[in-house]
């Protein structure tokens, strides 16, 4: 079943039209999306760099995770909410854009990647907190960097007609 009728209905709802046509609220929502995304991805990037032992080598992984994630998670909530609002203003165009589809795929992969870390490596984090990161956790960190850079690139590129 094609989702197009639903997407069409969504972007023609009164509030989606109002948001799209608002000269002030639309730029505000778009700006908030980009800024909250920047902040939460920066927190993830710093954590990945810690796992790869590029930064904060003398600080434990658990400490860095505690400090960084309490800011990344609320940031992602704002990013997701504002992203959903932006999607509703041009649902059909976004759905048909290959860059949007790649972006969603990369987001899903980043999520699975994070869950993998959560269940495979986080429970025993205290054992290697200050020594060498397990090879698998390093791979997860490297993949996370690649996925997020990809999400940003596809998100920015989908604004252009290509």
């Amino acid at each position: 079943m094609s989702p197009l009728p639903i997407l069409n209905w969504l972007q023609n709802t009164n509030w989606a039209t109002a948001l799209k046509e608002s000269a002030l609220v639309f730029p505000l929502v778009e700006g908030s999306h980009i800024l909250s995304l920047s902040l939460s991805v920066a927190m993830i990037v710093m954590f990945d760099l810690r796992l790869l032992r590029v930064t904060f080598r003398t600080q434990s992984v658990s400490l860095m995770m505690d400090e960084l994630m309490q800011w990344a998670l609320p940031g992602f909530c704002i990013t997701f909410l504002t992203g959903a609002l932006l999607f509703s203003t041009e649902a059909v165009r976004a759905w048909e854009s290959p860059f949007f589809r790649i972006k969603l795929t990369l987001l899903a992969l980043a999520g699975i990647n994070a869950l993998l870390y959560r269940y495979r490596y986080q429970p025993k984090m205290a054992e290697w907190d200050l020594t060498a990161t397990p090879a698998g956790a390093r791979v997860i960190a490297a993949l996370s960097l690649i996925f997020w850079i990809g999400v940003i690139t596809c998100g920015r590129t989908m604004a252009y007609e290509l």
Partner: peptide, 15 residues
């Protein structure tokens, strides 16, 4: 692509 790099730079700087 340049705009994406610009955004990645902003992400690091602001973050």
């Amino acid at each position: 692509l340049l705009q994406s790099l610009h955004l990645i730079g902003i992400m690091l700087l602001l973050g």
